[in-house]
Simulated scan of single mutants.
Amino acid sequence: MWGENFHENSDRDREMMARLYPDGMHGAIAAGLSELLGDRVEVRTATQDQPEHGLSAEVLDNTDVLTWWGHATHGSVDDAVVDRVYSRVLGGMGLLPLHSAHFSKIFIKLMGTSCSLAWRNSADTELVWTVAPGHPITEGVPSPIVIDEQEMYGEYFDIPQPDEQIFLSTFTGGEVFRSGCTWRRGKGRIFYFSPGDQDYPVYHHPDIKRVLANAVQWAAPQRSIDFVAPAVVNEPAPRFRAQLAQDGEVSA
């Protein structure tokens, strides 16, 4: 679980964050995964203020699924670390960008679009509707999930057509938003999930914790041996060469 860890330490937000997320948002998300998945997972956290943002090659080589929350300091994320994560996703690591991580460098790089959207922070009620019943990410999740207070995200959301749309959210102003979408990039699975602003205790919500736990299991690679990023291959000369004879016959 990677967290930007900015709001937790900023002068403006420190007191509020200590009340809502005493262990940080990354700590709350990690605790929810451990609570629901138990011994099936080893959950670790990393934050942007650590060396290499806590995402060294060694750390990523031992990560099956990377969950990413960022908001205020996207531009300060080192491009070399972004490239490292990108290569790892193409090689098979799962990625879960959350909420305002739609503007993270890694998500934009993987999507190839601006990933812009409409928003309004006025403590709206969000209803998260399941639109892909039977999908593993929706297992045990009610429809709708009711979030009493949340930042509004609305369309148009500038993303490529999802491989699967899992959730659709509605808000008190009549807005709709594609709040849960999946893509495959290379060998990696990506699930974007929007609920979870720093101003509200959304990551303590039992149904949100269930979605994230399901998504981690869905995004995990099937075989660790498949962690190889695509690359240019210099092929040897072909074993058989065929050429047309003048009479139209093929000789090999």
Rank of each mutant, 00 (worst) to 15 (best):
Q217T: 14
Q222L: 13
D64Q: 04
P162Q: 01
E149Y: 13
S87M: 13
P136V: 02
T125A: 08
E139H: 07
E8R: 11
K109D: 09
D148N: 12
S251N: 13
F191Q: 01
H205E: 04
C181V: 09
A242M: 14
S116W: 08
S87Y: 13
V228N: 13
T63P: 01
F193E: 02
M93S: 09
R239M: 15
W69S: 12
V81W: 04
G92P: 05
I190N: 01
R189S: 09
A101S: 11
S143A: 05
G75Q: 12
L95R: 01
P238T: 07
V211R: 02
P238A: 08
I159M: 03
S114I: 02
P51W: 04
D158W: 09
G3D: 13
I225Y: 13
E249P: 11
N62M: 05
P221F: 05
L168F: 00
E155I: 00
D158L: 09
L20Q: 11
I208K: 00
A72N: 08
V216T: 11
I208A: 01
L66C: 04
P201G: 06
G75P: 07
L90C: 08
W68N: 04
D13F: 12
W69D: 10
L33M: 08
L36I: 04
Q161R: 06
V65P: 01
V85P: 05
P201S: 09
A242I: 14
T125M: 12
V146M: 07
D163M: 05
G196L: 05
G154W: 00
I108Y: 09
D61A: 11
I145E: 01
E249L: 15
V216I: 10
